[in-house]
Design a protein around this nucleic acid. Structure first.
Lengths: 343, 343
DNA sequence: TTCCCCTACGCAAACCTTTGCGTTAAGCCG
DNA sequence: CGGCTTAACGCAAAGGTTTGCGTAGGGGAA
């Protein structure tokens, strides 16, 4: 399909028998252009429906006005909401957002960052894959002069601007709450602890026990290979099989919690009378579940806004920065019917 | 921050004391370059970590390799999954995806399409705002030679490639199922019927009644101004207030259904014994709700794949097309515990 | 009248790559 | 040894825009 040529500054120049530079200056209201010429140019631009060619501009200015964001997945409340926050922030600053998902594939992540470098995006926000252990592809971006902000998922030992949520604190709050409301036998359905985020949640669970002088029973900790609802089902079946004493559950996230609740109910236990349960993430459905699910809320939208803000600050500061920002946002426990204050 | 200059083809040329054209040809394995020169160029390119400048290429070739997609919102299962489908399809064809959300704002939609035109994306996928009644901004894209595919939300009377889901059919299936399983007094919580999609679901509800000789009781139809869970709560309270006879509900979507279920339970009715309920969309949480929610599943991922496919076909066909594709995908009723086959 | 200055504009480079066409030199044949 | 072919490469334009610098011409002042 033959693309109709967009009208250019040169077309206008030719029509008016002036030079392209004059047209350019007229369009930018440059002082050294006469009012008459300006009027003529504006009029002609209107008539031809002139649109500046952003590609040519990008090539010239070495900036594209595009910010890239790479997330592991876009389906799901968490990242979708982060993206909303980022979108609102960057678009108010006049930038466009190039959203990509890595599908938790390290190879994909590398390829996407490579693409972004080729496209000459002005900056990149990234929440790395759980499998991301090396960071050469990050360094390549930096070497190309493209600032990088890492959010949500930490890369220990890697120097960069970071915006994280304190998973440890959220887990600690949740478990301590369960203890304070009288639960003594609290299980934890852990995610794959190779992932820092899940490890932190486990640590929060453990320390809440220490600090409250509750002995830890290792048979109450189930290590899952994933973090979807199905893993919650599996975990609960393991816990139930030995008929262990159990009156509380802290699940690594809401999806797992909901899988667990299903099994609890099927086995004839009551929530929250017999077993009190708390999830993590505050997915949109948590409040509508029955019983409504207590969970740990994270400032997701703010996470997106702040990450974007830090990136934008980079553009303002012309000087290369020597230190890195390191921001940790605090989550909050949301108490609902699945774990009432007193019973 | 001073961007370090990326090494260009000219740098390599200078280092080897040849012309840029020779370097370009060597990199593309052009036959009229000697093997020795090619080897030298490749080596130098490797050494300098040369990356071609996509902006210059885009300017030259008048194609960017970017496909734009505009959705009303990115948060939520439906569009996130569509995007996944699109992403998989276009990236396998070597395109990058520029994702934007209009937040159901018509002005925003116009602005985004304008941006995409300026960026010279190669094609655009769009699911219009509910408020989109005029289509000049679509025409501008087409006039600029940028193909356009509309998905999910129809624009009646507007000529373009379209990929839709048959909402009417889904609603009809749901309501007929409720009738066949013995329900006689079925309410419908409608969305804003100014929106074609919701109007179709209402029509499906009505025609299922006609065809099965069940009289329609207009007091059982509640017209909502929105389609979040809160509207389900409001609607049910309206229905309950007059103590109408009621043994089934078809909700315009899952979120509304879940709001409704909450009220039903609070009023002391049982689901599904007293009231059978079916939603629409098959949100991820529907199967985990309690009781699990019957709903209408839509081939969302396929919707994304197909829309992207049609756009890609456009690029292949050099001829301008005179006719438009019009694809309608069929949804499927998913029966779960909220509306058992027999009771 | 002469000189200067300012207004209003044009030229050309730069950003990077591709490609049609022209050019050089070597090699071969007669 | 002259003329031809061909291998191997260079030139320059094109894509669209911005911008520093140069310049023409007119008007005012001395």
């Amino acid at each position: 399909m033959q693309k109709p040529r967009q009208t250019t500054i040169i077309d206008i120049a030719r029509a008016l028998r002036v030079s392209p530079s004059t047209v350019s200056r007229a369009l930018h209201n440059h002082p050294s252009i006469s009012a008459a010429t300006k009027r003529a140019v504006l009029e002609m631009a209107e008539k031809f429906d002139y649109q500046p060619n952003l590609l040519a501009l990008s090539l010239l200015n070495k900036k594209t006005g595009i910010i890239g964001i790479v997330v592991p997945e876009i389906t799901g409340y968490f990242f979708a909401t982060v993206i909303s926050g980022v979108q609102d922030m960057v678009s108010s600053a006049g930038y466009k957002l190039l959203i990509c998902q890595s599908n938790e594939s390290f190879e994909e992540e590398k390829k996407l960052l490579q693409d972004m470098a080729l496209l000459r995006v002005d900056g990149v926000l990234i929440s790395p894959t759980f499998r991301t252990k090396t960071f050469d592809h990050f360094d390549r971006l930096k070497n190309a002069g493209i600032p990088l902000v890492i959010f949500d998922r930490d890369c220990p030992n890697y120097k960069a601007d970071k915006v994280l949520v304190d998973s440890y604190d959220g887990a600690y709050q949740a478990v301590e709450y369960l203890i304070k409301t009288g639960r003594q036998h609290i299980a934890h359905i852990a995610g794959p602890i190779a992932f820092p985020t899940f490890k932190q949640r486990l640590d929060g669970y453990l320390h809440a026990h220490y600090d409250n002088n509750i002995p830890i029973r290792s048979e109450l900790i189930v290590y899952s290979d994933g973090f979807s609802s199905d893993y919650g089902v599996d975990a609960l079946e393991k816990l139930m099989i030995c008929n262990k004493k159990l009156d509380g559950i802290f699940a690594v996230n809401d999806a797992v919690a909901i899988g667990a609740m299903r099994v609890i109910r099927e086995k004839g236990y009551r929530i929250p009378e017999d077993i009190s349960i708390v999830g993590f993430d505050d997915e949109s459905y948590a409040q509508y579940y029955f019983p409504s699910l207590s969970t740990v809320w994270q400032p997701v939208y703010e996470l997106g806004m702040l990450s974007a803000k830090i990136l934008l600050d980079h553009f303002a500061n012309k000087e290369p920065r020597e230190s890195y920002r390191y921001e940790v946002l605090k989550p909050e426990l949301v108490v609902r019917d699945s774990s009432p204050p007193l019973y």
